[in-house]
Nucleic acid binder design. Structure first.
Lengths: 240, 240
DNA sequence: GCAAAAGTGTTGGGCATACACCCATGA
DNA sequence: TCATGGGTGTATGCCCAACACTTTTGC
């Protein structure tokens, strides 16, 4: 072989999606560093270089474990990014070399995506005050090529939800209204949906159980709460 | 960080699918090497370590370019594999170290899949006599974890074809019969399809044009040929 | 003629879309 | 009493699955 082979670093990055009832959000970490004289503040995806004897999935799980107290249910590898130009910004290089105390050349990153419920049980670890939930349209500039990684993650979520709609229940609260669920689908697909048709679709899902609880203190007719019954789902989708 | 960070090698591997009218096939390369005293022959996926200044997609394209004279239309990254145990077989390590004349530790591979038409224009380069088209059920043992890479590639193809059925036209000949197309779908989904319904589905696809040509010299009623009209397809699927 | 594979017609059910409508509540 | 958002009923049309049947061809 004539062309030299490169010895890159390999990292994992996690695109963590959450839903607040109105918009899709991504979990980002604050980053501070120095560029020459001046220091800067910006945002990045949670991630890490991989350790020896660690599988890719394990590395991603470790990154998530550093963020959340509870175990992550849905964590899924979706694409690797390895353009030589992704480490072209000296700000990124400088920050990373300072963080790991190593000379860094090229970095290939294996990206994961996760869908989580933003609630008390999935609270961020207390020492992670630098984490911020950011709504998709508010994401402008990030470290490395993280903006395009997020864009591709959104595409992937869309693809997977259209194949397995039950993935959205990872994002919704334990108890949710029909409108919340509909807004989430509208966010994901980027288009309005017919209210009536959505209700009919929901009532056809026997694993979405209507509850006898209703919203309180709202200035209009109170919406019914529903819950996702996983047992009913697996029963009706495994042949037994 | 307490745990040491690893400096792995990074490669690309390509799972190239072809269809001979009856079964799905994967393109494999013959591999010969020595294990202690004895030498061995087996099969592997086409692949390569990545070069410096080369993007992942470019590396995969290069590997394909070494196999085929014509340019590849559909080449798509689908998953990375990086378990430390994937290089646990000394036969694999020995073969690779001999091939690249380097000490090799851990290898992370970014896998691509390609759907191609097995015809004259997509002929293998003449110097690639070590390439063999292998039917899926005939694939038993391969180098590294290539068997499981192929299994995941098959899943991915299924997923993508179910979202965009026109991908199958990459596998079919320019002119194909309804039966060929149906058998391909049956191979992909692993289940028989109703002949009548399949014809109706085809006739609803305005981008599948019936031709005035028919099979010749067959011992039964000659089947009509069809072709995929990409222009009609893009016209009716881009809003204009 | 016979076997084998190509190709067609018909019907009933499920699901999506669209639109018009009623219900509950706070201002 | 009106505006707002939650939720329902009903009609229409498309796609799909499950059928049995006719056509063409080589032997």
């Amino acid at each position: 072989m004539q062309t030299p082979i490169v010895y890159p670093h390999v990292s994992v990055d996690c695109v963590v999606f959450g839903f607040d009832g109105i918009h899709l959000h991504v979990l980002l970490l604050k980053r501070t560093g120095k560029e020459g004289e001046t220091s800067f503040n910006d945002l990045k995806l949670p991630g890490s270089l991989i350790f020896s004897e660690e599988d890719l999935d394990e590395a991603a799980q470790r990154v998530m474990g550093e963020l959340f107290a509870k175990n992550i249910l849905y964590l899924h590898q979706f694409k690797s990014f390895g353009s030589p130009s992704r480490t072209s910004n000296p700000r990124d290089i400088g920050w990373l070399e300072n963080a790991v105390q190593q000379k860094i050349g090229r970095i290939i990153t294996v990206s994961y995506l996760s869908l989580i419920r933003i609630d008390d049980k999935m609270k961020l670890k207390s020492d992670n005050v630098q984490a911020v939930w950011t709504a998709l349209p508010d994401i402008k500039k990030l470290a490395f090529d993280h903006v395009s990684i997020i864009h591709e993650a959104v595409d992937e979520v869309r693809r997977f939800v259209s194949m397995d709609a039950t993935l959205v229940f990872n994002l919704l609260p334990k108890k949710f209204t029909a409108a919340q669920m509909r807004v989430l689908f509208e966010e994901l697909y980027g288009e309005k949906m017919d209210v009536r048709n959505f209700h009919k679709k929901m009532s056809r899902m026997d694993y979405v159980m209507p509850l006898d609880e209703f919203e309180q203190g709202v200035s209009h007719r109170a919406a019914r709460f529903y819950k996702f019954d996983k047992k009913t789902y697996t029963k009706s989708h495994t042949g037994f």
